[in-house]
């Protein structure tokens, strides 16, 4: 019954490494997910799990000491990793745009808002300055900035954080991209402003029919905005599914732990059980399952053999031994106060 969605972006087994003084660091190691056309996919995980590096890898905007080692990033069937720098520039800001976590510092302080939005338009649409400025005003209107004619002439320091994030959105959407990557777009903002910005992104997505990659550490944001979710842990995707399944029937112990540490009113929570332990250092990754040191049900095999990201059922992928034929633990386990039967 499920209709086959067209995937605008496919990330397969992405591996991104950084050269550091302490040796090579694999910040992203085997990340796979798909972005269906017109949908929002969330990438969720604790800080340091490699969400930003994943998105920067897609746009090939890594710092000088970082590089993509392996994998492919298929945008409309073409591998972005194989494009020339020039071809990649034509995609950035035009077909794939990005907004960032820090609205206060993401705009250039010495140019006006209008100049900065215009620049994107002039680069990609090859239109005149005057025309670009006119369209910049329209964009500011689109993102709900009052008196846009006045605002285009202002410098970033004259705007609040929420306004600046709206400007960033206007700039990102100026060329009508097919994918918007939003890296924690509301994390640095006040709670009330957060809701407005999320609402704006959702509204524009519907109107402009684009796909969104919503990066966040906040499952609340995922619940509100996403159609699909990739849960990341220590540089890997550990669970990928549609958002309903994720909240109703989470499978990976880490996802369960995350959900359990989130206060919810839709289900009875006996008590909040936090995930014990700490995120492993990228210099010292566990050899088996990366979550094993913190997992309440880890077995001997978990500590020695790394699990693969396997498809289970329809459009669902899990990286956990519990869901494989080789599971050597109990067939009934209790995870964060929840009993579940696993196949074995």
């Amino acid at each position: 019954m499920t209709q086959q969605l067209e995937n605008i972006l496919e990330v397969n087994n992405l591996q991104t490494v950084f050269a550091t003084e302490g040796g090579e660091v694999r910040a992203v190691d085997g990340v796979s997910f798909v972005v269906p056309k017109g949908k929002t996919i969330g990438i969720v995980g604790e800080s340091g799990s490699g969400k930003s590096i994943t998105s920067l890898s897609i746009l090939r905007l890594l710092a000088k000491n970082g590089k993509v080692n392996d994998g492919e990033i298929l945008f409309k069937g073409k591998d972005l990793l194989k494009l020339t720098d020039k071809q990649m520039r034509d995609i950035r800001g035009n077909q794939i745009s990005m907004i960032f976590q820090e609205p206060m510092t993401s705009l250039n302080p010495v140019y006006t808002v209008g100049q900065q939005i215009s620049e994107t338009l002039i680069i990609h649409k090859k239109i005149s300055k005057q025309e670009a400025m006119k369209q910049s005003v329209d964009m500011l209107k689109l993102v709900g900035i009052p008196s846009p004619e006045k605002r285009v002439k202002q410098y970033p320091h004259e705007l609040s954080g929420g306004m600046r994030q709206r400007v960033m959105i206007a700039m990102a959407l100026a060329c009508d991209p097919e994918i918007l990557i939003a890296d924690e777009p509301t994390t640095a903002l006040d709670v009330t402003i957060q809701a407005q910005i999320l609402e704006l992104i959702r509204d524009l997505q519907n109107r402009l029919d684009m796909s969104v990659i919503m990066i966040t550490h906040d499952l609340g944001v995922v619940a509100e905005t996403c159609d699909y979710v990739a849960v990341m842990y220590a540089g890997q995707v550990v669970e990928y599914s549609d958002v309903r399944t994720l909240f109703k029937n989470p499978k990976h112990p880490y996802t369960l732990g995350l959900l359990n540490s989130l206060p919810r009113h839709d289900v009875d929570q006996e008590k909040l059980i936090p995930i014990k332990g700490m995120v492993p250092s990228p210099h010292d990754m566990p050899v088996g399952c990366r979550f094993a040191p913190r997992c309440p049900v880890a077995t001997q095999a978990c500590h020695t053999k790394p699990p693969m990201l396997e498809s289970i059922g329809n459009n669902e992928q899990i990286r956990c031994w519990m869901y494989s034929e080789e599971w050597d633990g109990d067939s009934e386990v209790t995870l964060y106060g929840e009993k579940r039967t696993v196949k074995g």
Binding site: L59, R89, G93, S97, T105, S106, T120, I123, H124, M168
Partner: peptide, 15 residues
């Protein structure tokens, strides 16, 4: 190293 330089690159501005 500033964020707005990353923004410029993300817009497709040439190096």
């Amino acid at each position: 190293g500033q964020d707005y330089i990353r923004t410029a690159r993300a817009k497709g501005v040439s190096e």
